[in-house]
Simulated scan of single mutants.
Amino acid sequence: MKSQIHLIRHGITEGNQRRLYYGAADIPLAKEGERMLKELVAEHIYPEAEGSDFYTTGLIRTEQTLTLIYGEKEHSVIEELREMNFGQFEMKSYQELKEVPAYIEWAGDKTGTFASPDGESIVEFRKRIENGFDILMGRHRLKELSVRHSGKDAFSTVVCHGGTIASIMEFYFPGKREHFYKWIPDPGHGFTLDVKAGDVLNYGEF
């Protein structure tokens, strides 16, 4: 039996185009994001969806991405897998923030424990993602058990965020890449995790 979890980053948004800090902001895909996803679908880069359980984080950009890739699919929401909340820095650029004392202090933090005003710290973010992935893995494990004797495969497909995916990948494959940011896939791309009985074994990219 094949057992896989597909992690897909949502398509391009205004936040990506303008290089803004955003995670909690519920913004839609940009027109470019919609166009690019349609092109990627035409290139057949996405994992098979037959029999998959589908998930989003409930934010509009993940909902739109799921629909553009796989059509209208019944799915569940795991809010714990949302992108980092940047608090008062949301929807602002480096140029807008570079002289703000709170931003300077936050950006210079090497411990990961300093939260942006009204936002969350890196440590808090990673713990939330760990909890969210535990929820997902628990549901996927039930999927594995439900198809174990049927000869079918177990697939779970999650449309989420770049920071979310990087956090998951760095947790399971420490030292494989030199920096957290090297794990962030391009918009519309992601990773397939091969799993067995709740363990992540290896990965592939798409």
Rank of each mutant, 00 (worst) to 15 (best):
R19I: 15
A49S: 12
P185H: 07
R139E: 14
F173N: 02
K176F: 15
I27C: 08
A42T: 07
E120D: 04
T56S: 11
E99M: 14
T111E: 12
D186C: 09
F86N: 04
N16H: 13
S150K: 10
E63M: 13
S167M: 02
L81I: 01
E43P: 00
E124P: 01
Y22D: 05
G33T: 12
H140D: 09
G151C: 08
L20M: 13
Y70P: 03
E43Y: 05
E72Y: 13
D186V: 13
R141I: 10
H44D: 13
W106L: 08
L66I: 02
L29E: 02
D153H: 15
Y172Q: 06
F125W: 03
R139Q: 14
T67R: 12
A107M: 11
G119T: 02
V200H: 02
R82T: 10
A166R: 02
Y203A: 06
E43A: 14
G188I: 09
T56D: 08
P174K: 09
I27W: 09
R139P: 03
K92G: 00
I122K: 09
L37K: 00
R126I: 00
K127C: 05
V159M: 05
T111F: 06
T65H: 05
D109P: 01
K92E: 10
A30K: 01
M84S: 07
P101S: 04
M169K: 00
R9I: 15
I12L: 13
A107C: 11
S76D: 15
F89V: 10
Q95K: 11
E32G: 14
L59F: 15
E178K: 10
L59G: 03
M137A: 09
G188V: 09
D199K: 15
Y21S: 06
E99C: 04
G87P: 03
G190R: 05
Y46A: 07
E79W: 10
L40Y: 15
E50D: 15
D26E: 12
R126G: 01
R9H: 12
F125H: 02
